[in-house]
Each structure stands twice: as structure tokens, then as C-alpha cells.
């Protein structure tokens, strides 16, 4: 199935609204965690040809952190949160009470990665919670998995998975703003990749199919 064929503006509005509720909740959760005001931009849902996905948010060689979770059962899908690597590390350092400066590189990365897993978990978890509220489905998430890599490499994996079933990808972009920090780079984007058949179930549940 191709997203272009199935998705109308109304469907996109629903996904965007899910993102909206999710973003609000994620901002609140992050703000509690960091002890600072956090805002998230209104998410923008887009349908993009898979062949254009790698460069859609910037240079394919830009360094990013990506967090992957899956949910199974009623709505089997993969969710990936992508954020500029520098920004992810800045937020990670705010989450970690210890000073990491004296630590060796690999140990510091390991500790930061667990904080970044939690960032992704919060954003993707609240996104799924919003979806769960709307559908009434319990949508438990898997343990988050973290990658530090080129934007293009992460996006190309997403594009390939979308590519199994069609020619388009659904991307939801938002931006995290943390009070007192300069904004830079990619502030956060969520890619929701429903397993084959899941999207039909969702649209049916919402009475839209």
C-alpha cells in the first residue's frame, strides 16, 4: 500500500493532532526532568517520497542521535526519534547529575547514550500514549535502542522499511526548545513506520477507512 494513495488531508490532520498532543505531553515530561522550561513546536506531518528522505532534514552527513522503539500487538509499528547529536548531548548532560568531563570518551558516550535513550523514550512514549488515548489500544513500547550516526544513514533505513510496501514515507517534524539554550540543528523529528497492515487497522479504528 502506498501512503499517497491512502492518506487524505483528514488522515494527515489526525496524525498531526496525535503528534500535537504527544508533543505537549513530551514537553511537560522533559521540562520536569530537566528542571527547565521546554517547548515543542507544533508537529508537522508530511508525506515524502522515500527517495528524497535522506536529505529531507539537512545534509545526509550531519551527525545525529537516533532512538528506536517498537510497539507490537494492536498497532505494530516502529518509531524513530532523530535529533542533532550536539543538541542530544547537551540535553543528556542536563539530565545527568554527575560531571562527565574527567571521564574517558567511551564511558562518557555510554552514560550519555542512556540519557539519550530516555529522551527518545519520553518523546516516542508520549506520542504513543496520545495514540493509545485516541484508539483505546494499549501500546506498550520496547526498550529503546540508540544509534549515533549520519542523518542519511538513519533516514535510509527508515526509507527502506517504508520501501517494502510503497514509495512514500510519513515524517513528523517538531523542534525542541529548551529555555536558556541556543537552538541549533535538527531539534527532533519522529518517524512512525507502521508494519504492513497496521495503518489500515488504525484508519479503520478511527472510522476513516
Amino acid at each position: 500500500m502506498d501512503y499517497h494513495d491512502k492518506f487524505t488531508n483528514i488522515h494527515m490532520d489526525v496524525i498531526q493532532e496525535v503528534g500535537n498532543i504527544g508533543a505537549g505531553n513530551a514537553a511537560t515530561a522533559l521540562s520536569r526532568l530537566l528542571g527547565r522550561a521546554v517547548d515543542m513546536d507544533v508537529p508537522i506531518a508530511e508525506i515524502v517520497p522515500i527517495y528524497d528522505v535522506t536529505g529531507h532534514y539537512g545534509s545526509p552527513e550531519m551527525s545525529v542521535c537516533a532512538v528506536l522503539v517498537r510497539t507490537e500487538e494492536e498497532f505494530a509499528c516502529s518509531l524513530i526519534f532523530i535529533i542533532d547529536e550536539k543538541k542530544a548531548d547537551i540535553i543528556a548532560d542536563l539530565m545527568i547529575p554527575t560531571d562527565l568531563s574527567g571521564m574517558d570518551e567511551s564511558e562518557r558516550t555510554r552514560i550519555r547514550n542512556s540519557a539519550i535513550a530516555e529522551q527518545g523514550n519520553i518523546v516516542l512514549g508520549t506520542f504513543l500514549n496520545a495514540l493509545s488515548t485516541i484508539t483505546g489500544w494499549p501500546l506498550p513500547t520496547s526498550t529503546p535502542s540508540v544509534a549515533r550516526d549520519m542523518l542519511g544513514s538513519i533516514m535510509s533505513l527508515a526509507a527502506s522499511i517504508f520501501g517494502f510496501v510503497g514509495e512514500s514515507a510519513m515524517l513528523i517534524k517538531t523542534n525542541l526548545h529548551i529555555r536558556g539554550l541556543d537552538d541549533e540543528g535538527l531539534g527532533g523529528t519522529v518517524i512512525m513506520i507502521p508494519d504492513p497492515g497496521s495503518l489500515e487497522r488504525l484508519l479503520e479504528k478511527l472510522g476513516m477507512l
Partner: peptide, 15 residues
């Protein structure tokens, strides 16, 4: 791209 972890170890990630 992603290390194996529990449920995230789905077949599609071995592409």
C-alpha cells in the same frame, strides 16, 4: 543501524 534489543530486534531491521 540499531543495536539489537528485545522487541526492537524485529526482522525488518536485518534488511
Amino acid at each position: 543501524m540499531f543495536p539489537v534489543s528485545g522487541k526492537a530486534d524485529h526482522a525488518i531491521f536485518s534488511v
